[in-house]
Design a protein around this nucleic acid. Structure first.
Lengths: 342, 342
DNA sequence: CCAAGAATTTCACGCGCGTAAATTTTTAAT
DNA sequence: ATTAAAAATTTACGCGCGTGAAATTCTTGG
């Protein structure tokens, strides 16, 4: 029903016969104007289809309604899924989330943070690249912009951290694997972030507590092409008949998926059956892990809790003007998902 | 080495002893100011670390340097990968890409387009949800904003379309499958976009040309949880021993992955071996398809060409002031990727 | 060394809106 | 009805920068 183009708030205000600042108040909080005023504005809004200019609004507001979401690698279904949930939560709160992926690149992450600064976001949810992140760069960013870290922790940086408790999940999995088969060896690659290190250490600790000798094998390769690195590494291992155990715990599901592919190709049956000679477990419960063959036994990270709590923490942070009394770390337990592979 | 905080361009200008508009010109195009001026600006830039306020800039510019990228479902690795490439191309050109996912939701797609309008983007790359998209809504958007469609075509909408040629790829796959096994049946679900329809039709056409009776089976279920829909559907089929052929061509890789999972669980061996009773092929060469077991024979969509050409088309569109003489459709050939599953 | 033209720079204005303070209207209580 | 308090509205100013026209500086050739 657009009658004619409205150029700005002033025109719109004149059309209704209300002053512009009142209209401005309405858009910031409809309940802050009298009911009669609100109604006449809304009636006009249907007829004339006007919306405030985002740039003008954001230039003048102290804080925008922008929320930055930064993940290290969006092509990883884990982050895609977490990001999806966070986005939806933010939208539901009337905020404007913008999603950024560092694509595994340190420089890009820095660029993103610098650009984010210019966006004056109300807050940022950041899953840092991790090991490779320039701590200093992120630290500076967090000093300027209210930021919650998630997934990958950087000690002391950001107003809070939300992630999962590797020291709960990994021992649980180790325990399970020991009960149902041989004591597992740990299959990893050069750690891309702190989680990878924590998981290895948790594994070692758990093995020792159970009286087993820890065995860690690292596949060669760097970057975010996890499946392929694991695939190549596992193929070598299997072909050389160099497996220290018939059970393997992979640092994450993507490695496990590569491992499974290698096993399959080498004709090694994976699972519990009598004809199976290998058991493979992962960590994270990637969206695809249900559909591998055999389906992957793994630790489910609590997607819902992690994304919800991250967002809630951020809102809390924003409401407290960007400063919380104390940096908190919220760790969620993983859940053992028993499928066919181990 | 930031000496003190610069509040705005004026302060920065005074610091150097150059007028503000000159600084403005510099930021819009460094080569538009005298070399001596440029040098002194750049020298100051190192010392004082100033950057123009994005909102103020965008408010006054006719056109921003923003590029919108809209995909239907970002948790789908196909779109994640395409989006990644497009983003990198845009950044390389000095533009500011922003990524949006409709998360499979029609309403969200409309919201995104409406918000995108407010961002006054220089251009938009849009992979519409497809079947469910409100054509009218997208049409209106394209009338206001220079837009290139990709992946999923809507006839006559947008300045151009870039995608792959299902009528080349599907017949090629059908031909291959017929040569190496039985004539395939087509496994699909309720189409979420035009590609799904085109693939089915291309399949039917190809089968007829080869003198076979087309066989289409549709799994029940809606939404973007493709793997699960295929998994459930295939399980029923296999358990009921209701497969019309020993060879199946799935509408896309995600369905194929679900199909493989079902086959595995039902103890049906997939592949070429003498102990195999089923052959499964997909379409798209999803990033994960290399790592299924057995590895998935599929059609590789030309990620690189599609993303590059989309971006190039958009730049062309932008340079021509948002209007091209004629709507063009660029279709890239798929490439047969022979792996183990068929 | 000078003048005319070209290249830069400056001036002046406007973009569309937020917001504190001032003013008006409404509400509630007497 | 009267009035003080509360709520809503208006006034007036500023945000940081783009841009066309005017003024300045630079270049070039004679």
């Amino acid at each position: 029903m657009a009658a004619k183009k409205i150029r700005n708030m002033e025109e719109f205000a004149n059309l209704i016969g209300i002053s512009r600042p009142t209209i401005s108040k309405y858009f910031n909080d409809p309940s802050s104007v009298r009911k009669t005023t609100r109604e006449s504005i809304e009636k006009a809004l249907e007829r004339y289809e006007y919306r405030p200019n985002i740039y003008a609004v954001n230039q003048n507001r102290r804080l925008t309604k922008n929320i930055g979401i930064v993940v290290p690698y969006l092509a990883d279904p884990f982050f895609a899924e977490i990001a999806r949930r966070i986005e939806l939560r933010c939208i539901a709160e009337g905020l404007r989330p913008t999603l950024f992926s560092a694509h595994g690149d340190q420089e890009l992450e820095n660029d993103i943070l610098n650009n984010l600064r210019l966006l004056k976001p109300a807050g940022v949810l950041l899953a840092p690249l991790g090991r490779r992140s320039e701590r200093e760069s992120i630290e500076r960013f967090c000093a300027d912009v209210p930021t919650i870290l998630f997934d990958s922790n950087i000690e002391g940086v950001g107003a809070a951290f939300v992630g999962s408790d590797n020291f709960q999940s990994v021992p649980m999995m180790v325990d399970y694997l020991c009960r149902t088969g041989e004591a597992p060896f740990f299959f990893e690659m050069a750690p891309v972030n702190p989680n990878a290190n924590k998981r290895r250490n948790a594994y070692i600790q758990a093995m020792q507590q159970l009286g087993h000798e820890p065995m860690v094998i690292r596949a060669e390769g760097e970057g975010w092409d996890f499946e392929n690195i694991a695939y190549e590494g596992a193929k070598k291992l299997i072909r050389a008949d160099n497996l220290p155990s018939r059970t393997v715990l992979c640092s994450n599901d993507r490695l496990a998926i590569g491992f499974l592919a290698a096993a399959g190709e080498c004709g090694v049956r994976v699972g519990h059956g009598s004809d199976c000679s290998l058991q493979v477990a992962g960590h994270d419960d990637h969206p695809h892990s249900r559909f591998t063959y055999p389906s992957l036994t793994t630790i489910a990270q609590d997607y819902e809790s992690i994304s919800s709590r991250s967002v809630e923490k951020l809102f809390e942070l924003i409401e407290h003007d960007g400063h919380l009394d104390e940096r908190s770390e919220v760790l969620f337990d993983g859940r053992l998902v028993m499928r066919s592979s181990a």
